[in-house]
Computed example of a mutant assay.
Amino acid sequence: MDLWFLGTAAGRPTKERNVTSIALKLPDPRCEIWMFDAGEGTQHQLLHSPLKLSKLTMLFVTHLHGDHTFGLPGLLSSRSYFETKEPLKLFGPPGIKQLVTTALEISGSRLEYELIITEISEGIVYEDEQYKVEAALLDHRIECFGYRVTEQDRPGKLDGEKLKRLGVPSGPLYGQLKNGRDVELPDGTLIRSSDVVGAPVKGRVVTILGDTRPCDNAVKLAAGADLLVHEATFAEGQEEKAYDYGHSTTLQAAQAAKEAGARQLVMTHFSSRFRGEDMPALEDEAKTVFPASAAAFDMMHIHIPCVH
C-alpha cells in the first residue's frame, strides 16, 4: 500500500499547499487508486504524481465543504478522456449526489463511464474479498465522516521445497493448500495445509479522518491502525480556536494516535497561517505526545509495509 498527499492545506490553497486530497494505491495485482476527498485543483496535483487518473476506481468524500469537494466535477469529467470504461464508485455523506449531479448536468458534462454514487451512514460502506471500508461520524461543523480501510489477512507463503519433497505436483493442489485446504495424494498421503503454508500475512489498516474536533469515533476508527491521517489545522495553544471552527490541534491529533495505539501519525489540513518553515515545530509538538508523528506536505509519499 502507498499513500500520496495531493493537498494538505485547510480552507484555501496557498503557494505551498493545495487543498485536501489523499490517494491510496492498492498493491499488486489490483494497483487501483482510491481517493479520499478532492478539493479544487486535485486533478492538477495528480499530473505531478506518478498516479494515473485511469486507475481511479473508488472515491470517498468525508464532508461537503468546498475545500474537500470543489475538485470533483473536473476530476470526474477528465476521467472520461481515458480508455477505461470501468465504473467509478463515489461514497459520501447525504447531499453528495445532488452536488455532483447538479454540477455535471448544468455544465453539460457527459461521463463515458458509469458513476455509482452511494450516500453513506455509519458502518461498513464497502467490502470485498480483500478490503473493507468502515465509516463513522466525526465532530465537525457539518456532517463529516472518517474512514477505516482494512486489508484482509492473506495466506502465508507456500514452502515449495517441502512440497517437492512430499511429492505434491505443482498445479491446483498448490492453490488448495495455500487457501487452507488439506489435500490427499493418489497414494493416500494426507498433506495438511498448516504443515506447508507459513503464517498468515496480517492485513494493513489505514485510517483517514475528515475535519474533526477530538472525539471518540476518531480513536475507534484508528484503533491499531498502521497509519492514521489526522487533521491538525491549529497548533498547541490554539485549542479554543480549533474547537470554535470544528478542528484539532497538533497535540490533539497526537493524543488520538496514542489512545488508538496507531503505529504512525501523519498530520495534514494545516491552516494557511503556517508555512514550510513552521512544520518542524508542529512536528515536535506532536512528538511530545506521540513520537511517530509527521507533518504532511504536498506530494508526500508514504509506503505502508506489511507487518508479519
Rank of each mutant, 00 (worst) to 15 (best):
L26V: 05
M299L: 14
M267A: 10
Y126C: 08
V197Y: 02
K241P: 00
G92K: 08
D195K: 02
Q252T: 02
K164V: 15
I116H: 06
V133F: 01
P13H: 01
L76R: 01
E240H: 14
V100R: 00
D67T: 12
M279S: 02
P87Y: 01
L64E: 11
L104S: 07
Y81K: 09
W34T: 07
L76E: 04
R273H: 14
K162L: 15
S78A: 12
D182Y: 10
H301I: 05
A295L: 05
D216L: 10
G66C: 11
G156A: 09
E259P: 02
R141Y: 10
S49M: 13
I22P: 00
S54T: 13
R17S: 03
G11V: 06
L90K: 03
E161C: 03
V205M: 12
I117W: 01
I117M: 05
A292V: 04
L47H: 12
E127R: 14
G246E: 07
Y126F: 15
A281D: 09
L173C: 08
E122N: 12
V61P: 06
D216M: 06
E86W: 02
L111H: 07
H48E: 10
I304K: 14
S271D: 14
H301F: 15
G224A: 07
L56T: 12
R110I: 04
E122L: 04
L111D: 11
T101S: 12
A10L: 12
L75A: 06
Q252Y: 09
H269Q: 13
D195M: 01
D216I: 02
W34E: 03
G108Y: 02
Q255S: 11
K55A: 15
S121P: 03
C215V: 05
D226R: 07
D284Y: 02
I117L: 04
G180E: 00
A296P: 07
G7E: 05
K220Q: 15
D139E: 13
E129C: 05
L190E: 06
D2Y: 11
I191K: 08
I191M: 07
F82H: 11
D278M: 07
H303W: 12
P93Y: 06
D182K: 14
E239L: 08
L177W: 04
S77L: 09
L209V: 05
F290C: 04
Q43A: 12
E285V: 03
S272M: 10
F5R: 13
V61L: 12
S271R: 05
I106Q: 10
F274C: 01
S77F: 08
L265S: 11
D159N: 15
G167D: 00
H65P: 05
S78G: 09
I116T: 10
L158Q: 06
K132A: 10
V307G: 15
E143A: 14
Y147C: 01
